[in-house]
Design a protein around this nucleic acid. Sequence first.
DNA 1: GCTCATATGTTATAATGTAACGCCCATGAA
DNA 2: TTCATGGGCGTTACATTATAACATATGAGC
Lengths: 165, 165
Amino acid sequence: MNASISPADGPFPSPGHDHSHCVETAIARAERLCAERGARLTGLRRQVLELVWQSHGPIGAYDLLDRLRGLRSGAAPPTIYRALDFLIEQGLVHRIARLNAFVGCDHPGAPHQGQFLICTACGSSAELVEPEIAGAIDRGAAALGFRVDTRTVEVTGLCPRCQSR
Amino acid sequence: MNASISPADGPFPSPGHDHSHCVETAIARAERLCAERGARLTGLRRQVLELVWQSHGPIGAYDLLDRLRGLRSGAAPPTIYRALDFLIEQGLVHRIARLNAFVGCDHPGAPHQGQFLICTACGSSAELVEPEIAGAIDRGAAALGFRVDTRTVEVTGLCPRCQSR
DNA sequence: GCTCATATGTTATAATGTAACGCCCATGAA
DNA sequence: TTCATGGGCGTTACATTATAACATATGAGC
């Protein structure tokens, strides 16, 4: 099993966690990946990626916009959405459809699509990378002759911490 | 494997299909289920369910609203959303998060959550009921100590017809 | 420096979804 | 019968999310 975390360094954020370290790591990985690919991680795009990671869970576009305005007065919705489009294209950010929200990808570089566990009590999320889930989906689709492009898997429930509260 | 269809009577709609029959069947099932449960399938709710089924694929709330206005002048967004809330609660309709759209459930009465194949070429969708997918999700979640509530599975790609065009 | 494509700024608007309040009507108790 | 109750729906207003369209700036390569 290959489970991991978003945005903290355990399956779900733990209390004494140094999150700024995660942010730095994520930015560093993003820089490297974009350099390898010749993709332009501009100042704006890096700022938006930092803001996504600084959030302790999935964050909406307009919340990001509010925070971005602290850095760039005059930012407007297209500012955010264009940056997010780029980051998603590069596999650095995932969009969670059920929440209309965005979250940093824990496995940039590895070809995969997001599988998310979303805690309805605390709002945190964890990213799964489960080949078994993708495999089961592909078998079901193949049985109907369907050619798979993207797979969205979003699971709601309670994270370990919120179960014991 | 237990695959089936939405809204037609094969894995994906076929050309000479008599769709009005599907609509009637769906309404009849809904009447029966609601009667058993003591749930009130009112005139409005039945009309909305018919409109959902009359669509040959997932349909947005405001498209439904436009059509409903042909039957009830003065219908407003809450009219549609409240009816949809009821229908979803009763398991008669599913919401497809990626599309912000709604589709009739092929398996009302059977406890399940929607698993959808969505053709990006023709817009049609097919509903899967794959215990293997749910099982794989549950195992992945259990490994992180996550208690599952709902599972959203939405797969995009090409249906058999659109692959051969 | 020039040119071109790309990135970003800017304004406006589209698309989707909800809050809040009040009326009506069916139901059941006094 | 009357009246309280609650659900369903009408209605208005508004909140939230996302995009279109056009102008300007920036940066990489020549």
